[in-house]
Every structure is written in structure tokens, then in C-alpha cells.
Design a protein around this nucleic acid. Structure first.
Lengths: 352, 352
DNA sequence: TCCGTCTGCTAAATCGATTTAGCATGTGGA
DNA sequence: TCCACATGCTAAATCGATTTAGCAGACGGA
């Protein structure tokens, strides 16, 4: 290695990280930016540009690592290839699973996305759609959020459960889920079933509750108000389920099975049951909902109603992109229903 | 309520969702866009605009719900108030906890962020920084990713563990973590300690391993190669830890404690231990690393080395924003070290 | 020779803001 | 009376692309 040589850097210096502009590229080539643009974008107008010129342009673009400024392009074309995703809280398993599916599809289609989390704050839920639109988001996916659709860009809501103009709802078939769970418990012989209802702010709570009541009636299972407790804190920890289950146990009513609002609260409930000397599933069967990562490796592993969260994310993204490229005023699906499945593991067993 | 009145909407009609442009606002007011801009942005130049005019402008802006087009503004000002965050996989607890911290701080400062996940694909790790810059990201946070810094915008790496020009590293004090864990086991009387090493692609693996070796030497704990296994799949499930622990158990060497690479693999390990008739912690103590959501509610609850993941996210965002507003070429921190703490729960106990 | 057509490209408008230099008009002081 | 200065605004350039209309020259045919 000729060390001295390196003291005088060879010119022309490689372009620094800072990307060159199209104008500079045009000057370098002795062409106009119009020509460059036509070629780079393979527009129909480039048909009349001879092959040699096109090659010159591509070569120079490669040499200078030309990358079009997407802000400028978006400004002109009114397409940003960006969407916004609203979630309650990004660190929750629910949101991040859905996001993972959303990502998968958007990535394939060349879109990027902003994530905003509103932490159930009403003002943010109202404001974020506008902020996203200001930043040129072409559409919005609202996850587990009651979205009012007060912004006129295409929107898809996951578990939104409200029919709002301009919004496509992606929902789980809660009736089927409730059916799978209650029938499973019923077949195992359970009749006195305790229930943990979701937090009021969760958009799934009411729908699922109604589904459970309806299915219970169908199966002849009695829903006893004394066997019902409700999650009451927006903490994402099993602690909430633990606390309400303790309260339930202290109140004293007997039950042989517990149907929790989600896996997190089921885990809290199991802890509470064990602390008070009840074995799961020997004394009490517990069933959750969601099938989060940890469900299979919990001890005992959780029987649960699996939501296809990733799939819901993919479907949401697909639907949104379709709506974005559709002509304004086109028809769009109002609701897309996905089916849950039951995953039977160790936390449920036949009643003794 | 005079119902008939509503049949004829009052004019002028309220502006539809589509936001009005500054030009339209200017025309409406009989002013130039320059004036509007000065007032809306409270620029120094607005000093010479009388109060009444300013009020007229604000009133009209409110009435028409004027929102500046941020793409246009960014193009001109070369500030986008957007950063990019690279993660291996968004649905992992690690990334999403860090993201939550990042979000917290960015939100306060009015920044938005793009999330991209590379799933350990080399080409994407190379390409994403450029794509983010094309979309005007002003900086990059790379989470648990070996970032090569080949893009000249400010970058902060969380657990990057490589000194790269232009990149600030946020790292955990792995020596302290290893010390806390091994000393805890040592004090409980454990001498034969099995280890689960991380996947090769994880940027923490090597650093932590070296820390463990060094601390073990210090404490006089012998690291036996036969007691060491390594995670070998990029699945985020405890299954990987389960599998390698089974392999370890089948190979037959005796041990009384196991130090897992993370909580996920610790859970898998516990399952494997239980399946082969060993009780945790009575027969084998298990300690994890991370303190993820489920750790406290696992059965038995996990003793673990807690990483302040959220905090790391906050610090990363703070550092990045500081660097963004600093003059070009300014000094910047090369490394910021955060301290873990040990959380003692049920999965470790004195050696029998 | 002249017209029409094709080829190969460019000028200029545009997207929606910001920002600088400077133009009228009025007012006060010398 | 006239200059200087403040007041209240605006014109125009600019950011970096896209896109439309159309120009200049070559070439072929009548």
C-alpha cells in the first residue's frame, strides 16, 4: 500500500453521503431535468429518448448515487406512499403483533408508515388523524381504537366496532370466539363460569361481552353477575387481572372455570387462584383470549381463543392500499370479519 | 330547533375535510402568502404586522381549519421533524419496549417517526438508512442492529456494540449485569452453572458473553464448555431455548443453575427442565435477562437482570435530537452506558 | 423545393410553503 | 419643503422534483 499516495486524495472525490440533486445531475450531463425525470421514472414520455442517452443518464445516476428527494416528488404528485397507524400503546403485544402484519404488507408495496400511540387520550385520538394527514399520510389504520373518522382520508379500523362513514372495520367474529370458548368449557362439564370483562376503553369489550351473553343463552350457561368482574386499569400487566380475581375470590362465590378477557388477565387470574390454594386446571379451568407469545409457555400453558392478529394487520393494510388507489367515491368494504380458533392447552380440564 | 332551516345549508359551507391552502387563505383575506406565513410562524418579520391584521389572519386560519402542508414546509426548510427507527422485528418485546421510550420523547418534542424492520436481512440493514433519508428522516435510531453508519445523518444505536463513525452507542453495562447475576447465583451456593448464549446475529451476544467470562473468572466460577449451549434460530419464541436446553439435558452434564440469554429462553429452559423431572428452583435455579412483561407472572416468576429498555429508548431519542439540532461537525457522545439491576423472584433459590 | 412528420429534447408551470429584499405610504423633524 | 425613517405589506426566488406543451432540426416524399 503506497501510503504517500493516500495523502493526496484522488479527484474527483466520490460524492459524499449527501445525495446529489437532479438539477446537478442534469448539469453534469448537459441535459435538462425534464429529460432525467422522464428516464428515471420510465414515463411513457421517455419513449422518444434514444437508448444511448438513457444509458448515460442511468450511468450517471448510479455513479453519483442519485436518489430522488421524495418530499419534492410527493409535493408534486400528491402521493407520499406513507400511511399512519394509530395504536393505544406500542409496547403492548396486541398492537405490536398487528403492526407486524401491517408492516409485512406495506413493505411489499413500498409504503412506509408513521406510528402514533394515543394511550387512550381522547384529545390525541381526535388530533392524530389530522397530524398524520398534515404529514401527507394517504390513509390511516386505527388499531383497537374508537376512531371517529373525522378526517377525510381512507381509514381502516381494527376492532373499532363502530360503523363510521369512510372507515372499513376489520373485526374478529366474537360470536364464534365466545362459542368456541364456552362450548369447550361446557363440554368439559363446567357450569359455573366466572368471567373477566375487559376495560371500558377497549373497543372489544362490549362486543365480546354481548357475544358471550348471547352464546351463553344458546348453550344454556347461566351468567351470574356475582361471578363477573371487570378489568379497570389501563396497565398492560397481568396485575390487573390478578387484582380483580383476588376480589372475586374474596367475595366467595364458587366456580369451576374462568373465562378471562385476554391472556394477560388470564395469567394474573391463574396467579391469584394459585395464591389462594386452587390448582389450575384441577380445581379451576382458565381460558384466555388472544394467544399472545407467552401463552404457550406459561405454566400451565394457556387454553385460549386465538386472534389472527398478524393476519388482521395484513388484511388492514391490503384493504387500505386498495382504497387508496381506488378512484375517489368508489365503493369500499364496510366490514371484514376474521375467524378466531380455539387453542386447547393445559389450563382447562374436565370438571372433577 | 327549526328543522326546516336545516334543509337549506347556510352558506358559505364549512370547509370540507380537505384542508385549505395558504394561497387560498391569502386570497380570502386580500393579503399575500408572505404575510400569512410570517404571522402563522410568529417569525421576527411579523413584528411590523399590526395586531388587527394578525388577528384577522388567525381568525381566518381557525375558521378554515388551515393546516400548513408539512411536505412543502419541509422541502423549503430542510427540516422534517421526522426520524427513522430500525428494529429487527417489531413484534418482539425488546424492540417494542424501546420504541415505547423513543415515542415518549419524540412525541414531546413534536417529532414523528418511521419504523422499519429488517428481520436480520443484511441487504435491508444496508438499504433502509438510505430509504429513510430519502424520506427526509433527520436521524436514525438503530435498535439491536449492527449499523454500519454508511449514511451521513446522525444516528444512535441501541446495543449496537460497534464503534462506528457518526454513531452514538447506547449500551447496557453488561459487566455489571453479568456480575449481578453470577454473584447472585454464587452467593446461593451454585458452582456448576449452565449458560445459554445468544444467537450470533444478536448484537448483544458477544459483549455479554465476554462480560460473563470475565466476571466468572473474577468470582472463581468455572465456565464449562459442556454446560454451554447457544440459541440458533431467529424465532422469538421460547421454543428455541426449550430445544437447546433439552439438548443440554440429554448430553447429561450436571448443573444446579442456568443463566439464560434472555427471559424468553429462560422460559423455554424452565419448560424443558420441568419436562425432564427437574423442579425450578428446587433442583435448578434459572435466571434470565431483560425483565420482559411476562417475567413477573411466569410460573415460577423469573429472577432476571432487568434492562431499562424504555429508558434506553428515551435516552436514544434525547441524544439523537440533541445531535440533530447541534451545528454540523459538533462533538457528540460516542457511548452512553446504562445500568441494569437484578430482580430477584422465585426462579432462583439456594443450592440444596 | 417545400411540407409534413418524426426525433430528441427543453422551457416553464406547478406542488405549497418560506424567506429576503424592497416598495409604497405616511409622519415627524429640520 | 424635503429628507429620513417607520409602518405595513408584497414580489419573487427558492426548495427538488413532475409534467405538459412545444421547439428545432433531420428526413422523406411529392
Amino acid at each position: 500500500m503506497a501510503r504517500s499516495k493516500n495523502l493526496t486524495p484522488e479527484s474527483p472525490v466520490e460524492p459524499a453521503g449527501a445525495s446529489i440533486s437532479m438539477k446537478a445531475l442534469a448539469e453534469h450531463l448537459g441535459l435538462s431535468t425534464a429529460t432525467i425525470s422522464l428516464v428515471i421514472n420510465r414515463s411513457p414520455g421517455a419513449k422518444s429518448i434514444p437508448h444511448v442517452t438513457q444509458e448515460r443518464i442511468w450511468a450517471a445516476a448510479r455513479k453519483f448515487k442519485y436518489r430522488p428527494n421524495l418530499m419534492a416528488r410527493s409535493l408534486r404528485q400528491k402521493r407520499s406512499f406513507t400511511i399512519g397507524v394509530m395504536v393505544p400503546e406500542i409496547s403492548e403485544g396486541y398492537s405490536s403483533m398487528v403492526l407486524s402484519g401491517v408492516e409485512d404488507h406495506l413493505f411489499q408495496e413500498g409504503y412506509f408508515y408513521f406510528v402514533v400511540s394515543h394511550r387512550h387520550r381522547k384529545d390525541l385520538i381526535e388530533e392524530y388523524p389530522h397530524l398524520l394527514r398534515q404529514r401527507a399520510a394517504e390513509g390511516i389504520i386505527a388499531v383497537d381504537t374508537v376512531y371517529s373518522g373525522n378526517c377525510d382520508i381512507p381509514a381502516v379500523s381494527i376492532s373499532g366496532h363502530r360503523h363510521v362513514k369512510g372507515v372499513t372495520n376489520i373485526v374478529l367474529d366474537h360470536n364464534l370466539g365466545a362459542h368456541l370458548a364456552l362450548e369447550h368449557l361446557h363440554r368439559l362439564g363446567h357450569r359455573r363460569i366466572a368471567l373477566i370483562k375487559g376495560q371500558d376503553f377497549s373497543s372489544d369489550t362490549e362486543t365480546r361481552w354481548q357475544a358471550i351473553l348471547s352464546v351463553a343463552r344458546e348453550l344454556g350457561v347461566v351468567i351470574d353477575e356475582k361471578l363477573t368482574v371487570q378489568l379497570d386499569s389501563d396497565s398492560p400487566s397481568p396485575e390487573v387481572g390478578h387484582r380483580v380475581t383476588r376480589k372475586l375470590l374474596e367475595a366467595g362465590p364458587q366456580f369451576t372455570a374462568l373465562f378471562a378477557f385476554n391472556d394477560i388477565s388470564a395469567m394474573g387470574a391463574i396467579k391469584a387462584l394459585r395464591e389462594t390454594g386452587r390448582r389450575v386446571p384441577e380445581d379451576v379451568s382458565v381460558i384466555g383470549w388472544d394467544d399472545i407469545q407467552g401463552a404457550a409457555f406459561h405454566n400451565p400453558s394457556l387454553t385460549t381463543v386465538r386472534q389472527p392478529l398478524r393476519r388482521m394487520g395484513v388484511v388492514a393494510a391490503e384493504t387500505l392500499l386498495k382504497r387508496i388507489i381506488a378512484p375517489a367515491g368508489a365503493e369500499y368494504p364496510k366490514e371484514i370479519v376474521l375467524e378466531p380458533e380455539i387453542v386447547v392447552r393445559e389450563s382447562t380440564a374436565p370438571m372433577k
